[in-house]
């Protein structure tokens, strides 16, 4: 099936520093707003899931090594938002690494909610390797 024409695209590479995350998230949210995504997508789904994906790439994928970069590509059309976050790490098994943070033991843990939130707030989350480690997020516009 042919993709709908892109309304906006973003293609940016950043060093492995978490200080860059908020600006990229703002840019993607702005593009989704221009494409008339619903308010809740702009204030909850996109910012939280994208923050998780980029911080995962920086902290876990690249181990916060400033010499390693994270590449973010976002494409917004009339149907959906698709974001790819690529790091230079070895990758991970999405299912094995996604814990249920709501169990009694996990509820009191400080970590372990990132992948769960990403998968709860996006319509689809995929991971693949293409020489780098890529996480793809897809959110459909209702």
């Amino acid at each position: 099936m042919e993709a709908a024409p892109a309304l906006a695209e973003l293609n940016v590479r950043i060093p492995s520093d978490v200080q860059y995350i908020a600006d990229i998230v703002d840019e993607v949210v702005r593009r989704c707003a221009a494409a008339e995504f619903p308010r809740r997508h702009l204030t909850l789904n996109v910012p939280v899931a994208l923050t998780e994906a980029i911080s995962n790439a920086i902290l876990r994928g690249n181990g916060e090594e400033l010499s390693r970069s994270v590449h973010v590509r976002a494409r917004v059309d009339t149907v959906r938002l698709e974001v790819e976050v690529r790091d230079e790490g070895d990758g991970f098994d999405l299912d094995l690494c996604t814990a249920d943070p709501t169990t009694a033991d996990n509820l009191v843990r400080e970590d372990g909610r990132g992948l769960f939130l990403m998968r709860s707030l996006m319509d689809r989350v995929e991971r693949y390797s293409d020489g780098g480690n890529v996480v793809r997020l897809i959110l459909h516009r209702p």
Partner: peptide
């Protein structure tokens, strides 16, 4: 908004 690190 708050991410998982903020919740943590």
């Amino acid at each position: 908004y708050i991410d998982s690190s903020g919740l943590g």
